[in-house]
Design a protein around this nucleic acid. Structure first.
Lengths: 347, 347
DNA sequence: CGCTATAAATGGAACGTTCCAATAAATCAA
DNA sequence: TTGATTTATTGGAACGTTCCATTTATAGCG
């Protein structure tokens, strides 16, 4: 079976009785070759079991057709949804995205980026790992390879970013809680080495300010952005002197953790303690009680990021505008008794 | 900034005052070069901002260092965990895995495989999409590129498979339910175009047989392998004349769906209807009630698959033994009142 | 000192493609 | 008929690496 030395363009040229140039033209779908010749060549390709060597091709061609998607945590369904959104667009454009996971580890990220670059990617969409150093992408920038950041930004970088309107989302959610009558509020989860954290926390604080919640009645508990982190946050909060009655969580994972911790204490999310999440992952709707959350249109942002990348590649530029995606509050049961059923308006 | 024509090995040779061959040797970490020379060269590499062109290298080298992981559904945390397990091993081996998602679509899978092959991957780990045609991998086999199937197998293929012991897992789970006193049992979710389905259902039926549950008291409901599918299954089952009191679900997603549907009917999983899942995803433990499930050591299977792949590449063979992973039943609340807290023994 | 053995560095050919300039064949104008 | 134009096809020179066979420098030994 396994025909030894793998077939090259010359083998199929010989097989079809044409020159290698002709085969190359056929491969690229050039309109210059006579249809009958093309058919003959394609048959030879099939017969020989030829596989195209893109590495060799890229040696001469300017651009490759592969795009790298670097994701900081694939096990988080949120980022998986993001990846899927991007994929849809790339597929339609005939581009194959390769996904690489950094597991929130900057060192791993470095390796992954290096490898992708060596592979000759046409562009990179990155959701940077926590703790990424500012210079981590300089190498790539000077190489002239377009990059787009998705969901997360770096403190002082000029790389275009596609992100939801975190500030506005946090404002919407916080206002919602205050309007429900809560006067002592908490912000749960996340840590200050993430720019997103500041954006979301900022929105929370602004809404508190505007609606007259004194800073003494705001509790901020940093923590892991996971279920476990959320559970810890709730424990901390309930141990406080004047404990809060409602919390905006950094993301849905934290919110799920909070709800679990509540249940363990025989408290009910919604009735005894209001919980609002962020990101509105698909699970949120199915939880019990269903989680009120800020919907960010994850897949839509993924699509947008992919489009921006394609545009950048096409116009061979390394610059693009940021995109701040609209958000909306999806009100479900976890934020309190089900009195008003309307959905928050989009930003 | 972006130094135009990107630097090659010759540029850095000139910069360092050595020959291109020397640079190549340094790049490969050959012990032949004098340490001081290596240092000089590495400095030049840094100064010039050189990026290695793996495509060019692969033109001469036998093997590339990239391995493709083709996953049928990245949004399913189960497969994401699998991917993460593989990654761990590959990272340690200095190999970079590229992940591609097929979204359970055979056509997409075809594209993805083609692209990966063109990229010159050293090997492929594949969780085949549902409905994959038997011949889909012939191309790759004849090209002599090693493949391993993970979690799923194809009906009549000689490609090595890494999979959990589905049959045994189903037997364990079913026995557990029967020992709890249930006499009318259901098997929920999945469909017969999946080999796994037959394995799991087979275990269920065998256990029923052995422990004397007549076939009239076994209900089999096919359905989507998702929450939604699970909800539908339960409705169907409760509508039956003599409805079952317990169900083994095809996977955890189905089980979650069943529990949601129970809650909507104001029934409690465990007390009113026993539910057992399959795969034991991390969520299972955190659900309420916590889900009894067959643990398959997902990440471990991923690691195993990666190891097998590395071994195949190293020994340049395209054959390897199948690996059937041990499973264990993790008993939690969803399968009935919390009387016995022990964990099922491994297969 | 000359000779061999070892260590370090090197030039050139090859890998599989693309692309340009050139050719060959067919068509048209005059 | 000849030349110009169009249509298909083709050889050869890149592209950036690796690897083999050499060359050059260094050391060892009698």
């Amino acid at each position: 079976m396994a025909s030894r030395a793998k077939a090259t363009i010359l083998d199929i040229a010989r097989e079809a009785g044409v020159s290698k140039s002709t085969v190359s033209l056929v491969l690229q779908g050039s309109g210059l070759i006579r249809p009958e010749t093309a058919v003959k060549v394609r048959k030879a390709i099939e017969d020989v079991g030829y596989v195209y060597n893109r590495g060799a091709a890229n040696l001469r061609k300017a651009h490759s057709n592969v795009i790298g998607m670097v994701i900081n945590d694939l096990t988080n369904p949120f980022f998986a949804e993001l990846a899927v959104g991007m994929e849809r667009v790339f597929q339609a454009a005939g581009v194959v995205p390769f996904i690489a996971n950094t597991a929130e580890n900057p060192v791993r990220q470095e390796e992954v980026l290096k490898s992708l670059m060596e592979q000759g990617v046409a562009g990179l969409i990155v959701s940077p790992a926590r703790g990424t150093t500012p210079g981590a992408f300089r190498r790539i920038e000077t190489a002239g390879v377009p990059i787009v950041f998705a969901m997360r930004r770096l403190p002082d970088s000029r790389i275009p970013v596609i992100t939801p309107d975190n500030h506005r989302g946090a404002v919407l959610a916080t206002e919602h809680l205050i309007r429900k009558g809560h006067r002592r509020l908490a912000f749960f989860g996340g840590s200050s080495d993430l720019v997103v954290y500041h954006e979301r926390l900022g929105g929370f604080l602004e809404a508190c300010e505007t609606l007259g919640i004194p800073s003494a009645d705001r509790l901020i508990v940093e923590g892991e952005t996971s279920r476990k982190g959320g559970m810890a946050c709730l424990e901390t909060a309930l141990a406080a002197a004047e404990s809060p009655t409602a919390a905006l969580c950094f993301n849905d994972a934290v919110a799920f953790g909070v709800m679990l911790a509540l249940r363990r204490r025989n408290l009910e999310a919604g009735a005894d303690f209001a919980v609002v999440g962020f990101d509105d992952v698909t699970e949120a709707e199915h939880y019990s009680p269903a989680l009120t959350s800020v919907a960010v249109d994850t897949a839509g942002l993924g699509e947008r990021a992919a489009h921006v990348m394609l545009k950048m590649i096409q116009s061979r530029t390394t610059r693009a505008e940021d995109h701040i995606g609209a958000v909306s509050l999806v009100i479900r049961e976890s934020s309190g008794p089900d009195r008003n059923k309307q959905v928050g308006d989009a930003a």
